[in-house]
């Protein structure tokens, strides 16, 4: 990798070729009540996962709840 390209101009693939996808999303299905997701947030906020995605019909992420 060229030494004079700023990090900001590099792709995520170049920066973390092996580890980019190692932090799996934590998810909850649409239709669940909010009290369920709060327990998950206590565990994952401020971690590499940081938020919980809401999915609908198989694996499609439709939203996110977490730190802002």
């Amino acid at each position: 990798m060229s030494q004079d390209i700023p990090i900001s101009e590099r792709t995520l693939r170049e920066l973390l070729p092996e580890r980019l996808t190692w932090s799996l999303c934590i998810h909850i299905d649409k239709g669940k009540e909010v009290w369920v997701v709060t327990g998950m947030l206590v565990q994952y906020l401020e971690s590499a996962t940081d938020s919980v995605i809401i999915r609908y019909e198989a694996h499609n992420p439709i939203g996110v709840i977490g730190g802002k």
């Binding site: 920066l15 649409k30 439709i62 939203g63």
Partner: peptide, 23 residues
């Protein structure tokens, strides 16, 4: 917490990136 669904408070449409997205 009780009676409200997660989709009622979520932020829709999470940011999606690819391996080719620049930092």
């Amino acid at each position: 917490f009780y009676g409200t669904k997660v989709e009622d408070i979520m932020e829709s449409d999470p940011v999606r990136v690819t391996k080719d997205t620049k930092y």
